[in-house]
Design a protein around this nucleic acid. Structure first.
Length: 422
DNA sequence: TCGTATGATTGCTG
DNA sequence: CAGCAATCATACGA
């Protein structure tokens, strides 16, 4: 659409107030080409007067200004001046026409929208963000009994944020619409005295919308921040540390003491332990890391605990229970048979020493080992229970724990029977 | 309230 | 990157 057409349309808007003697029908596109009056001076004086009146119109009271406006609208010079304005507008309009191209969607806004959507704050209600709460709980790995309380707490808080967000959003939208309507009315009113193209109105509406969407973005940003704070509070396990369940600690301890000579579960074993204890693999790693250090630091203190678990393991073995029931096996070790059990048995014996107060004679241990069946050394060499890393670490572990009464003398570093000596 | 236990984090090492 | 050692922060029992 050409500018001229739009301006003509705009001109039409301003017509109604015009007096009969100065209708658009009589308006020439080039008022300066109007037949000159007998004298140019009064005309100039006239224009000066009008401009002066326009300039001072805002200083006057509303009624006064209204009256003045009406008078100006009826002024005989109005069509001519209006036409001049149209011409100026036509020229200047070109410069602003292309200034506002379709701007691309703000990536930051997109990120905020996505996050709010993912958190269940924006978009359809997802049970007050229960999905997010569940995800958060899964991430925290916690299975504490009061998890449900935390969930509802999280849900409530998220729901509050959601409510505030939507209330504010609605408020902004309402304000935006009101303001837009107001500005459009204003522009329509103004179009009586100056040419305003629909494009211009559109542009103004666009500006208003952009302004309000920037406010909305601030709202989204602060909502995101609130959610992040809530999440970090909820997820900060260190802040909300929960002891593992008794059963989980039991499972971990059983594994630890039944693998006392080499308490380095493989990744697979960790996964299995994690599954059994309903905790994460990294929590299993943490637990073993802490346990190893604390055990090493104060073996005496853990003696009793070691004995208890040695008995447990012994019972489970003598009852024909596969030690894997208490000590998770790995997919790799499960099939090879023996290697995992062997190490478990070895460690069990070590712990048993502490139980009855004295050590099994090495020969006895040897004979017991031989009962494990021929070729156990081979299976050990192929033992995949312990990762190379753990094998390396094992040396340090054995060095540290060997002096203990719990550890068998045959399990010292360099022992050919060591789980990891190969 | 305090001491201990314990899960998590951090910085470092090989 | 796994593990160690130190440390933090919280839970828990006396």
């Amino acid at each position: 659409m050409d500018e001229q057409g739009r301006l003509m349309q705009a001109r039409g808007v301003g017509i109604p107030g015009l007096p009969i003697h100065g209708g658009p029908q009589t308006l020439t596109p080039h008022p300066m080409h109007e037949p000159p009056t007998d004298n140019g001076e009064p005309r100039k004086q006239d224009i000066g007067d009008i401009l002066q009146q326009i300039m001072t119109i805002t200083d006057q009271s509303l009624d006064e200004a209204q009256a003045k406006k009406h008078a100006l609208n009826c002024h005989r010079m109005k069509p001519a001046l209006f036409s001049v304005l149209c011409e100026i507008k036509e020229k200047t309009g070109l410069s602003i026409r292309n200034s506002q191209e379709e701007e691309p969607v703000d990536p930051q806004l997109m990120r905020l929208d996505n996050m709010l959507l993912a958190e269940g704050v924006a978009g359809p209600e997802k049970g007050g963000g229960s999905a997010a709460a569940a995800a958060a709980a899964a991430a925290s790995g916690g299975v504490s009994p009061d998890n449900s309380i935390e969930h509802s707490d999280y849900r409530n808080k998220l729901s509050q944020i959601r409510q505030i967000y939507h209330a504010e959003l609605e408020k902004y939208e309402q304000a935006c619409n009101e303001f837009t309507t107001h500005v459009m009315n204003l522009l329509r009113e103004q179009s009586r005295t100056r040419p305003i193209s629909p494009k211009e109105i559109e542009r103004m509406v666009g500006i208003i919308h952009r302004k309000f969407s920037s406010i909305q973005m601030q709202l989204k940003q602060s909502t995101c921040e609130a959610v992040m704070i809530l999440r970090s509070r909820f997820l900060d396990a260190r802040r909300k540390r929960r002891n593992f369940s008794k059963q989980a600690t039991e499972v971990l301890n059983e594994y630890f003491y039944s693998h006392l000579s080499n308490p380095y579960p493989s990744e697979e074993a960790k996964e299995e332990l994690a599954k059994k204890c309903s905790i994460t693999v990294s929590q299993v790693s943490n637990w073993f890391g802490n346990k190893r250090i604390r055990y090493k630091k104060n073996i005496g203190k853990f003696q009793e605990e070691a004995n208890i678990y040695a008995v447990k393991t012994a019972v489970s073995v003598t009852q024909g229970g596969h030690s894997g029931a208490n000590s998770p096996t790995t997919p790799t070790s499960a099939g090879s048979g023996g290697s995992f059990n062997l190490s478990g048995s070895n460690d069990m014996f070590m712990a048993m020493q502490g139980l009855n107060g004295d050590s099994y004679p090495p020969s006895q241990v040897e004979s017991l080992r031989h009962t494990m069946g021929p070729g156990y050394s081979d299976s050990l060499s192929a033992n995949q229970m312990y990762s190379p890393r753990e094998i390396r670490a094992n040396g340090g572990w054995q060095e540290a724990v060997t002096p203990s009464s719990v550890t068998s003398p045959t399990e010292g570093p360099g022992s050919v029977h060591s789980d990891t000596s190969n």
